[in-house]
Design a protein around this nucleic acid. Sequence first.
RNA 1: GCACCCGUAGCUCAGCUGGAUAGAGCGCUGCCCUCCGAAGGCAGAGGCCAGGGGUUCGAAUCCCUUCGGGUGCGCCA
Length: 583
Amino acid sequence: MNIFAEYRQLIVNLLNGLAEEGRLPGGLDCTAVTVEPPRDASHGDMATNAALVLSRQAGMKPRDIADMLAPLLGTAKGVEGVDIAGPGFINWRLAPSVWQGQVATILKSGTAFGDGTLGAGRAVNVEYVSANPTGPMHVGHVRGAVFGDALANLLAKAGYKVAKEYYINDAGSQVDTLARSAHLRYQEAFGRDIGEIPEGLYPGDYLVPVGQMLKDKYGDEYLDAPEDVWLKLFKIDASNAMMDLIREDLKVLGVEHDVFFSERSLHESGRIPETVALLTKRGHMYQGVLEAPKGKTPEDWEPREQTLFRATAFGDDVDRPLQKSTGEYTYFAADIAYHLDKINRGFKDMIDVLGADHGGYVKRMQAAVKALDDDAELDVKLCQLVRLFRDGEPVKMSKRAGNFVTLREVVDEVGRDVTRFIMLTRKNDAPLDFDFAKVMEQSKDNPVFYVQYAHARVFSVLRKASEVFPDLALDDASLADADLSLLNNPAELALIGSVAAWPRLVEAAAEAHEPHRIAFFLYDLASEFHTFWNRGNEDTSLRFVIEGDAALTAARLALIRAAALVIASGLAVLGVTPVEEMR
RNA sequence: GCACCCGUAGCUCAGCUGGAUAGAGCGCUGCCCUCCGAAGGCAGAGGCCAGGGGUUCGAAUCCCUUCGGGUGCGCCA
């Protein structure tokens, strides 16, 4: 499916052949050999670094290896114009028929084009969002949600078996706060004047219906009861209600998790002590005293003996406490238990998507995962802040005043597709500017619009074609049978080259865990398509629909249909709906 | 003080895990619409890839270091 991978295999086969003939040493490690499109298209369609990478291993000059390999490559099917360049690159072109064949391949595969085998069915667990169940989601959560979702889609496309997971922090003190805040609203539901919400409790209106719900459920049973009577109950009811809110928010954004995992369930099932016991058994725990952090010693610092996890043995900077001096477990202990649970469910590959403020957490969690299982691997993707703007002016937000912008507000204003696409137009570890006005702009400055427009234009051409050629079959299967050899001008071949690079891109992006590459690829592809379209302005013979030439029209429609399929396939990874016309 | 992330055109950012002459958009300059595809198009200028060392056939990319910016730093989740 990946044409570059096919030719890479060809190169490796040729190298093995040379080794068998004794012209190259045996047992060469070819993993570093790549076949890529050259950066400069004038060098050809493909390039390999084989001679350069193998030079040292073989104890030969790059040029000499290239001199052996190039002639063999030249005799291979579909290969033309082999050339040795620079320090020892081998460049070649592919016969137009090979490229043209790619169009048919794409049309037959549909949006499955680009599905990869990289993952080979390996199970990957992607944990993302995991917002505390204390209120509706706000903009700060949106980026991580979109990123995690797109990453999960990307890995699935690359052939992994992906589980999308949400960790519910329903056991910490913030849930106590939630329960107390809810109790206040519960009193309010009975008509009591609760006055201003005290400092330290959640003031949001979204708790009003929760108070009503508690009233309906329990009547006045807990109205004047002491806290220890109702707290546990209210924690469960309120956090469940918050999770319902969050699930609705996620739905609005088009994010659906496979698993919602409750931290409370870990505590209740006793799995945290089990996890600590396992680490103890493996010799990774000890009783000890930590040194005060330098430069920023807390005022009330005093040395205490604690149960420590030897994180430094696995690359962390200091050892980490798993139990408080009260004997209670730390949040980190629960988190280790959670990751152990993932491992026990068969996930050796895990990815956590977190906010950038969790930077200090990465090493210790990776250390813990290594300590639990040598084969397990955790990648942590940190998403930087989103800065909101409106017409270039920063949107002011204050958590204290409770006037943060909610996820719902963003999606209601600009729409799901725009929100998702824009969130992926930056690398995860770079801050992102989100301007409410700019993202809605209908111009080429706006990547969402530009990509959607390209897709819509293809459909517009198809509509036009059906008017000009009422008898022409325009479904993909029929177009795949068009005489594709008519696609022989440089612009056409270049566009085919771009769409044919899609599987390669999926693989690279999946391997790097970087869904933003898809967004950039789509922008470039759209740009190339628009350029092609514009050529038709000056030279009408380059238009897609050529009156009086059904054969050429069919071939060009096949090409742009292939482009549309690749765009749709990419948008599917991003979770964005391709549109068939602009409104 | 320590750790992690970042530093690429005037601005906002890509750069395919070490490849060939470092790219795109905005902005700037110059051309192109009486009509047939201008919610624009074509072309051009603009760079010591923060600075300095190293690793090798080859570095924006890897290592060390300095300088700038962000984030985090014992029983908070």
